[in-house]
Design a protein around this nucleic acid. Structure first.
Lengths: 190, 190
DNA sequence: GTCAGTCAATACGGAAGCGTATGGAAACGG
DNA sequence: CCGTTTCCATACGCTTCCGTATTGACTGAC
């Protein structure tokens, strides 16, 4: 496939990818058409072939993010070979605490900040949260917590995950890892 | 005091106030000179009398916020008449959970989002967090937790406060209040 | 009245950003 | 060759935003 200019955005997917990169780096205000075009090494002509306008890109980013997050939750919360519930919860927690996916975290926080001010974003986050809280509640319920208690623990679980990303601690990394480990133990009881 | 035009920004403090309002509503990208001027019912001439440029306003907002947050922490974490520690912690937690200060919360979250991308903001947040974590650690230590455990609990305490603001739950308000109450009990043990 | 200080309005030039219109280029099929 | 589809580049007009320069208005002190 040969393209018009020297560079190519990689089609619609390329624009979405650039959108997520910009979102991760600077929040939704950073998702701008000409900025994305420059990032992709093209001009904005192609953008307007794929998307009617900027809001359509933003909607596409939200839908993409929402569907992707929901798609991975069941898998992330499934117990491998009937392992202890606490182990499954710890594995899930470690996905976030390990700092192994800074881009994913940055996108998540950017979307959540956006959701504080825009209905469509809030709806996407609500859908993701609903599913996640249900899945993690189910895990806590398997630890014989009553439904309300299970839900509250799932709520605390996710609040911690996102909240700790917002705290700025200037302690040693090793100390912070220990602190998070202690919090993890408080959260999942192991 | 009569002023030049019909409207008056209320001096430097007025501009800072407008800046905080804009910050609360739309994050740091929303803090724009002409937008603030319009909000105050004046033009931007006076802004440039008080501030050299936009970055100077942003720095002032950060310093103001940091100093204000630090100033209130000791008072917020002092135990009234030797009351139980848990009571003091609950009172502190309720400042955030009660939704009684949406503007303060919005500003706090906007500053924290800003801090993810800008050093000066991150430094301000770090200073506030350091002080808060120390004060709340001290309270947990009075409950006879070891220093590391006390700190971890303080960390979890604040992570929960900010994290729950980022979650979007479409359950009934009464249900959510009950959930938060359960989380509060898990956090302070009462 | 004059001067200095405080605080502001306005005009201007430049930059960034958006969306629209138009034209270009490549590939493919008839 | 022509038409269609895909994907893009470019020019343009408009809006928003920024910072600078200049001028205006009011108050208080001398």
């Amino acid at each position: 496939m040969e393209t018009v200019g020297e560079a190519s955005a990689g089609g619609r997917a390329g624009w979405l990818e650039a959108g997520f990169d910009a979102l991760a780096e600077g929040g939704v205000a950073n998702v701008r058409v000409e900025v994305l075009a420059k990032r992709l090494g093209v001009t904005k002509g192609g953008f307007y072939w794929h998307f009617r306008d900027r809001p359509e890109l933003l909607s596409a980013l939200l839908a993409d993010w929402r569907d992707g997050r929901i798609r991975t939750i069941d898998q992330q919360t499934s117990r491998l070979g009937g392992e202890p519930v606490a182990t499954a919860l710890r594995r899930l927690l470690d996905l976030y605490l390990g700092r192994g996916n800074p881009r994913g975290t940055a996108i998540e926080l950017a979307v959540r900040d956006w959701a504080r001010r825009q209905t469509e974003a809030a709806d996407a986050v609500a859908a993701v949260d609903r599913h996640r809280l249900e899945c993690v509640s189910r895990l806590f319920a398997q630890m014989n917590f009553a439904p309300e208690q299970a839900f509250a623990r799932a709520y605390l679980f996710y609040a911690f995950i996102f909240g700790q990303s917002l705290l700025v601690c200037d302690r040693h990394a090793a100390d912070m890892a220990r602190t998070r480990e202690t919090c993890a133990q408080l959260l999942v009881g192991e």
